[in-house]
Design a protein around this nucleic acid. Structure first.
Lengths: 261, 261
DNA sequence: AATAAGTTTTGATCCAGATCAAACACTCGC
DNA sequence: GCGAGTGTTTGATCTGGATCAAAACTTATT
């Protein structure tokens, strides 16, 4: 039994129905999540299949690599990292997931999770059994469309990440990472320039294909350059436009890709 | 008007209906493509919405970055590369697409193509108008499921690529690239160990995050090591198991990712 | 066949960022 | 408060692969 099932079970014992009834329609994240664009009635149908668990804690797993795929998970509060074991023990961090973001989409194809998902801080997670969701999408066109969009967006994001890892240097990668967090937090109604990191420097480095030391040095340098204020996990972005300029990269120095034909 | 529309129009003028009637049900790729798992009747419904164009030629575009998203494209014969402009002229090759592979899935979300797709060699392409496809999937559950699977598979592949760019060295990347081609060709009934590359060394390097020179040197080295025979674009893989061993990477030397909590 | 333009290979050099090493800060349990 | 463990920073060194340079080869054009 994994952590979320455990959570669900315990919840039924100790928390009253009123308390757990946090319906999709009242959720501040609905515009980022599956209910996006659905009618009141359809949101209620969706609501019926969503399971909600009591908070999970740092280190708890939503699922592990190799687990049978059953559900998608949506972060309601907190944050989650997904990571794939590369052979021989080391791992690749694949993403950090903030409230409103869907986890597990990559497992639909093979019906097995190819990566693991762990909670980075105390978090509330919604579980959406995929078989139910799939049935529902067939009868709610706008939900089907939203599913296609969410899957497609995941591909776009991975694509952007490929560009980052394939073409950008350390400085550009870290700036892009900070801006991505900033923008995503902003969409959720939080400050785009003042936030706490829930992941370690090591995890950031792993995600960005950099050594911890490089990440640490860059934080120091960005701070010296007045781009940000760093106090342990507490980040304040002081110059968003400058960070944006960094991300695009000067690029002129790089070799061009010629066109065939 | 883009190349494929041009192709379709001309085709209607110069090619007889018999000739162009290459139905999905007779397509050798159906097991890799959308018809996978569909009943005879459903394949015919799918077939009705698929447009087929006369062959496109090297350098022709399926779509360009910024184009409105209308259709998905499936490679029937030949090969296609997709690439995104990184700012200031240079580009990132995002993928090489072989027969049976779907192109354009990343554009569903924003309704705009964020990358361009160009044909690498004379190729036949099927065009699937997405609005029609989406309608069809709502009434054919197994087609909907197949769409989810295809989208999910794309995510898995991107994920694998992230691992490649984030954790693997040059040698491991090229070995992985060669094996990927080998396996995909094999699935299509072609030789897994004897094939022609339709892309340049430059494009391979760009895709793998390596300089052309590095790719060239590695080809030379792999040949010296008896792993493969290279004659310009003609590749013969002489020792697939050894290549597989290379891909996994010795890995022991690398730093481990510690677990939180 | 000569010319031009791209593509691939080979050699020499350089450097961003990895790795190694060590001190330092924070957290948690006792 | 103390000590152990973990996470972060800083400094010194090393290296894989990029970059620079140029020759060798392919292909297309006239």
């Amino acid at each position: 039994m994994n952590a979320i099932e455990d959570g669900l079970l315990s919840q039924q014992k100790v928390i009253s129905l009123e308390t757990i009834r946090v319906a999709c329609k009242n959720c501040s994240l609905s515009s980022l999540c599956l209910p996006m664009g659905l009618s009141q009635e359809d949101v209620e149908r969706l609501d019926d299949i969503v399971k909600r668990a009591r908070p999970l804690h740092r280190g708890d797993y939503l699922f592990r690599e190799g687990d049978r795929f059953r559900s998608l998970y949506v972060v309601k509060t907190g944050s989650v990292k997904t990571f794939a074991p590369s052979p021989e023990g080391s791992e690749q961090v694949l993403g950090f997931h903030l409230p409103g973001e869907l986890i597990g989409l990559d497992a639909i194809d093979k019906d097995i999770h190819a990566c693991s998902a762990r909670v980075l801080e105390t978090s509330a997670i919604c579980e959406v059994p995929f078989a139910h969701l799939e049935e529902l999408t067939a009868s709610i066109p706008s939900l089907q469309h939203q599913m296609y969009r969410l899957l497609s967006k995941e591909i776009s994001q991975d694509t952007e990440m490929l560009l980052l890892l394939g073409k950008k240097n350390a400085e550009e990668r870290l700036a892009a990472f900070l801006l991505s967090l900033s923008q995503r937090l902003h969409k959720r109604g939080l400050s785009p320039s003042d936030f706490y990191l829930s992941m370690s420097r090591h995890e950031i480095g792993n995600y960005l294909g950099l050594a911890v030391e490089t990440v640490s040095r860059l934080f120091t340098r960005f701070q010296e350059d007045g781009l940000m204020q760093v106090d342990r996990k507490h980040i304040q972005l002081l110059n968003l436009p400058a960070l944006e300029t960094l991300v695009v990269g000067s690029d002129q120095g790089r070799r061009q890709q010629q066109q065939p034909g």
